[in-house]
Design a protein around this nucleic acid. Structure first.
Length: 618
RNA sequence: GCCAGAGUAGCUCAGGGGUAGAGCUCUGCUUUCGUAAAGCAGUGGUCACGAGUUCAAAUCUCGUCUCUGGCUCCA
């Protein structure tokens, strides 16, 4: 087998991704910290094991396709991949064949040995074997750095390691190839499309099984699947790709969230505003959105011979309201909030259920304040972030994104804003991870990443300082010294978008929404028609107390219990002769082992308490 | 947008050049039932859409749309 070359050396792309739809940022993290089980340790690290299995796979693939070319093959969270340039497209049917070949390779491979060679030797060797991608990778290795190869059996790969010591450390029943997909060479869409094979590897068969179970659980909770099964939402190609229909039950969830959201904003002295969904194109020219994000804005429509655009952002609208009158320093801070629906043209291949869509509602707010007020305003936002995230049981991490290479504004103003963000975080004892250069060109920000019940990370709230729009729209206030000054503008969103956030909630809770959000919390189940009147009365009491319920005596109780469970109705109120006689209900509560019997009054009080406390259990 | 795969009843899927099938759902009847599936009958499909090949297309070919897995991208 000819030498082929390197793997992940000049680390290209971002090998820390599990699913693009979830990991929306670029912050890497340690392997397997997020799994619901603790993987067994081995003689080397899991990364080294996986990296080694990727070599084994590359060896196996080239045995099957001798004319194939290899690119990079790093370990990633929970597994590994390797990119290939092959004479034909792979399908899922190829995976078992490659796996079988891998088992042969493992049996023959023996020691993993490192060797060094000069740049010239390496270059010659890679060029001779036609491994053009490896030649490029070699060229990227800085002058003076050692050129290392890792070999097993007849395979040699340009690679800096580390690896297992011997292929015996790879268990043939503890790795699995999971999928094939396209991937651009060097992650650049201008480059050739290669074929990437993903796999997972562990030190024990048991860990592999646990991991496969974990994947199964993720699949079961997929919001698209639950959305269909439970009649929560749909998409309709006739209306357009990436446009979400919120069905009745999810409409209820959203309505509860929005009501709460408004309550929190009123408590913090935000004002509600409403802005138009379309605007003359000049607005987005002035805001700079057209210039910077033209590809993301929906095509123009001519109205009265003038091009209009559907809004991709709410900020210009809020600025317009602010600018509609002259503001005194006494007015500040001004806080505008809007559940603003925006439309952005996302490439077709990126659309994904409710998580990546072309029309969505941001829980947007803009704060106009003086530089001196900035830190206080950010404290208020951080407090609301905490209130909201902790209510759902989300853990979160905050990242301070500092000045990027290309930016607007003076050094002083950046320094001041950064300082304000830091002071605010310190006052809330919020630890800030660094995201150097991660700020937007118009200002620094704090981004939150949240971790769901399955340990997956999601893009969370964001609070951004903006030096750009105030200039572009010439925003002013009249200060105490009677000079017109530029206020600072803060953008912030906590849910982000209702679509993405609620899609995430579906998966986080597995559609078992907490009572305060739950669309149908109670199934009233009279055992026979005889208890129907009592059932109807109970349903009325529940409705009066603000709880929706279903009521049916049709069919055997067992069947109705099953159906209620599948509908994810957390409370089953069973009414038999005994209960009716005593004015009680028998309760089967999701996640609670023993059934409870209590009076109707107690039941309603119980539900009310759970709802008012936004309890996470039933 | 790119690479690959897929699209048959509301859902999950089988079938495959000679005018469509199962289970569940739904409707009706029977059953009156104590905590995860009672019985019988019935409704329901231009086989994604458009062209082409053919005596004949759901089936073969091409194009379009949508979805799936990734990649790139996400103010």
């Amino acid at each position: 087998m000819p030498a082929s070359g390197g793997c992940d050396r000049p680390c290209l792309g971002r090998p820390d991704k599990l699913r693009a739809s979830h990991d929306q940022g670029s912050v890497g993290r340690e392997n397997d910290m997020t799994l619901p089980f603790k993987p067994q340790n081995g003689p080397v690290s899991l990364e080294a094991l996986r990296h080694s299995v990727s070599h084994i796979m590359a060896d196996a693939v080239l045995r099957l396709f001798p004319e194939g070319k290899v690119a990079i093959g790093p370990s990633i969270e929970h597994g590994f991949y390797y990119d290939f340039d092959l004479p034909r497209a792979l399908t899922d049917e190829d995976l078992p064949v490659i796996e079988a070949e891998m088992r042969k390779v493992v049996a023959e491979a023996g020691d993993f040995l490192m060797s060094t060679m000069t740049r010239e030797e390496a270059s010659q060797r890679l060029a001779d074997s036609g491994q053009k991608y490896k030649v490029e990778l070699l060229a990227d290795i800085p002058e003076g750095e050692e050129i290392t190869f890792y070999n097993h059996g007849t395979w040699a790969d340009l690679c800096e390691g580390p690896h297992v010591e011997n292929a015996k450390q790879i268990r043939n029943d503890a790795f699995k190839l999971t999928s094939v997909a396209g991937a651009y060479w060097r992650g650049d869409s201008n480059n050739a499309m290669l074929q990437r094979i993903y796999g997972t590897a562990w030190f024990s068969k048991k860990d592999l099984r646990l991991y496969m179970d974990y994947l199964e659980e993720i699949k079961k909770r997929d919001h698209r699947r639950l959305g269909r099964e439970l009649d929560l939402f749909s998409l309709n190609p006739d209306f357009g790709a990436g446009l979400v229909f919120w069905h009745a039950k999810l409409g209820h969830v959203r309505r509860q969230l929005e009501q709460w959201w408004w309550d929190l904003h009123y408590a913090d002295n935000y004002w509600p505003v409403y802005t138009p969904h379309v605007a003359g194109e000049s607005v987005f020219e002035q805001s700079g959105h057209l210039e910077n994000y033209a590809d993301m804005i929906w095509a123009p429509m001519l109205v009265d011979n003038r091009p209009h655009r559907v809004k991709p952002m709410n900020c210009p609208g809020h600025v317009t309201i602010f600018n509609a009158k002259r503001h005194s320093y006494r007015d500040l801070p001004v806080r505008y909030a809007e559940l603003g629906t925006v439309y952005r043209y996302e490439p077709s291949g990126t659309l994904h259920g409710m998580l990546r869509v072309r029309g969505f509602t941001q829980d947007d707010a803009h704060i106009f304040c003086t530089p001196e007020q900035l830190a206080d305003e950010i404290v208020g936002v951080l407090e609301m972030v905490h209130t909201i995230l902790s209510t759902f049981g989300y853990e979160y991490t905050a990242y301070l994104a500092t000045r990027p290479e290309k930016y607007l504004g003076t050094d002083e103003i950046w320094e001041h804003a950064l300082e304000a963000l830091k002071i605010a975080a310190a006052r809330k004892e919020l630890e800030l991870e660094d995201d150097p250069g991660g700020g937007v060109f118009y200002g620094p920000k704090i981004d939150f990443k949240i971790k769901d019940a399955l340990g997956r990370e999601w893009q969370g709230p964001t609070v951004q300082v903006d030096f750009n729009l105030p200039d572009r729209f010439d925003i002013q206030y009249n200060d105490s010294d009677n000079n017109l000054k530029r206020p600072v503008m803060v953008h912030r969103a906590i849910f982000g978008s209702m679509e993405r956030f609620v899609g995430g909630l579906i998966e986080h809770f597995g559609a078992w929404f907490p009572l305060w959000l739950c669309p149908t919390p109670v199934a009233v189940l009279p055992i026979t028609e005889e208890q129907m009147p009592a059932g109807a009365e109970l349903q009325q009491r529940l409705t009066a107390a603000g709880f929706k319920s279903v009521l049916t005596a049709n069919g055997p109780l067992r069947k109705r219990v099953r159906e209620s469970e599948l509908e994810k109705i957390p409370y089953m109120a069973v009414l038999g002769g005994r209960e009716v006689e005593e004015g009680k209900v028998n309760l089967r509560i999701h996640g609670v082992k023993e059934q409870k019997t209590m009076s109707i009054d107690d039941f309603i009080q119980y539900l009310t308490d759970k709802r008012n406390s936004k309890s996470l259990d039933y």
